[in-house]
Design a protein around this nucleic acid. Structure first.
Lengths: 194, 194
DNA sequence: AGACGATACGGAACCTGGTTCCGTTTAGCA
DNA sequence: TGCTAAACGGAACCAGGTTCCGTATCGTCT
């Protein structure tokens, strides 16, 4: 059986092309750290030692580049959800912990939260990628917490967008800290003992 | 007594200059409605029937223009706080109502929330203006609600930034609705009956 | 090894939108 | 009516994203 589910046809890429793509990923990651995900295209190109045309060839839109750079981290964030659910005392604890994880991820990626909900068509793939991977994760946690009677139901997408928005403008060196606000949001979700 | 508190020295402006300034304010307001607060400078100029130089002469930075356009609305939002406090059943009700007002204001101003916390130096005046006027308003409401034992204390600035952030990307024709999220935030603030 | 077609590359050129600058116009006054 | 300072307009400039095409390189076939 041929390699499935990863590169179905695999039309055989040239070695130099693959090298450049790799160099671009590293250069972009570095540039994103220094200047945020809006780092100038030309900067990334010189860092990688390639021409700007090469960037557009490998990553037609900036969203493609961002997705490629953060793919792994998004995946592990998503995969943390079931793990947390299994290891936490209650679904509510798991939810809180996961939101913390998500917030941490966003504030360390300068400008990512901003880009995430930009309505520019170019960012649609980014949006879609994040949603595809993270929506199931939150949904799992929310359902569990609702079933346990710990929180009131909420649309997972709305929550994800809300927490994402809270993280806009936050970074390690900024005084603005979205963590307590995200916690407040989750607290507001709790069912009252009544 | 001379006019005070509005134009202290009033160095006598030329009539055409004043006319143009007025025309620019109207043009900018219209452009902001159509294209958000990032409306191209040249667009605003043609709408007002002036050259681009004239915009920069009257409003050196975009923030100056935005502040000038929304000055009245920010003021009435701020002034609503004591009024609501007086007319509401409880401080908590007043707080909730005021937050609704604030959210409504932001989502009708396409792009304002985004601009509000841009770290670009050019937007500092905008930031400062909003804070100067709205921070006292929230502080009043928060203090009253804390004193009444209805909510846990929170830094007013953090709350303002948080609610502002939640409104980013929201607009009349967007499916994303920050209102329930803002309500959740306030709910999370409530003291538990324990 | 040498040659050849396909693939990929580089970076100049172009486009959009913000900002500056200076020659020209005009309001206000004597 | 003439004069001067204020204000104007828009061309020119700059920055950053995007496109395009002549050139270089890879991989293969003989």
């Amino acid at each position: 059986m041929p390699a499935r589910d990863t590169d179905p046809p695999a039309p055989r890429k040239r070695a130099d092309a693959e090298r450049n793509k790799q160099a671009l990923l590293e250069a972009a990651a570095a540039a994103f750290v220094d200047s945020g995900v809006d780092a100038p295209v030309r900067d990334i190109a010189v860092r990688a030692g390639v021409g700007v045309g090469t960037i557009y060839r490998h990553f037609p839109t900036r969203a493609d580049l961002i997705v490629a750079v953060y793919r792994h981290q998004v995946q592990s964030c998503a995969q943390a959800a079931p793990a947390l659910l299994a290891s936490s005392q209650t679904p509510h604890h798991a939810l809180t912990a996961w939101i913390d994880l998500f917030v941490d991820f966003l504030i360390t990626k300068h400008g990512l939260a901003e880009a995430m909900h930009s309505d520019a068509a170019a960012f649609e793939p980014l949006h879609a990628y994040f949603l595809d991977h993270l929506l199931p994760a939150v949904t799992l946690l929310l359902d569990a917490a609702v079933d346990a009677g710990q929180i009131n139901p909420i649309d997972p997408l709305t929550l994800l967008q809300g927490v994402g928005n809270l993280c806009i403008g936050a970074s390690a060196n900024s005084p603005y800290n979205p963590r307590p606000l995200a916690a407040l949001l989750i607290r507001g979700l709790q069912t009252t003992p009544s």
